[in-house]
Nucleic acid binder design. Structure first.
Lengths: 126, 126
DNA sequence: CATGTAATTCGACGCACATCGAACAATGTT
DNA sequence: AACATTGTTCGATGTGCGTCGAATTACATG
């Protein structure tokens, strides 16, 4: 089958191991508006299927973006039926790059003119 | 023929105003290894001339990278003799995107295997 | 088995970017 | 004035990325 080809590779729908996550790919992944939006949608810990994002994009384009995020280690995906559920690898990200994801999420909210209601507890939005 | 986005295109050497700084350009600027290195070199508040970076790059390439950083609002430059002194716009960055720069600097240090010696004290040098 | 749904792979296209060298401009220095 | 130092601007080039549509795989269900 397919086992880690040593460096990089990022096989297995899971992406790189925590220690193998590099900074540049993460920043590159987050620097695209579409991908940043994806990350923001997943920020509350939910799992979404590819079709649930609702972007006006070709499916192949979405697949591409999700692969960039996955290869960088930002998200992970698991197969459920014919779908692929996507979620943030928040724990790994926070462990590897403390504070980075949070500050990017805050910055994204700020840049959008909104306020970041430090959720992650009682307040369920949408 | 080079860009001039029309929207506040960094007309003076100072780059965009604090409120006009956007997130994507900042992340894009930081996602390049050369530019990230530049930012790290400036992280302690020092001012550096273009020649002081010591990169094995053509001067025009360095100019390009500095312009990307400046247009994003990450650095500012001022003319001193025949040199251009470059420094981080830390205050503006921290005000606009709280925690972002610090977490990126920490992440860069982590990704390099080193430790980040939180050398930020209350002393506003210069 | 046939049909349908969900997502990936596969070119292909256009644009943006990192890089370079050469020419230009601005500012010292002799 | 002539020269040296420091950066910028100007093409040019190769690579990578975002986008698409069409073909393909994987799974579910009639």
């Amino acid at each position: 089958m397919h086992q880690d080809t040593g460096v990089a590779a990022a096989r297995k729908l899971g992406g790189p191991a925590r220690d193998e996550m590099a900074l540049a790919p993460v920043l590159t992944a987050l620097s695209d508006p579409v991908r940043l939006k994806i990350v923001r949608m997943l920020a509350d810990g939910c799992e979404l299927s590819c079709g649930s994002f609702g972007f006006p994009l070709a499916k192949s384009t979405l697949t591409h973006h999700l692969r960039v995020l996955r290869d960088a280690g930002v998200i992970s995906q698991r197969a459920v039926g014919t779908s692929r559920m996507t979620c943030l690898r928040r724990k790994d990200l926070d462990a590897r790059f403390p504070g980075l994801l949070d500050s990017v999420l805050v910055a994204a909210a700020v840049a959008e003119g909104r306020r970041y209601a430090q959720k992650r507890k009682g307040t369920p939005l949408h």
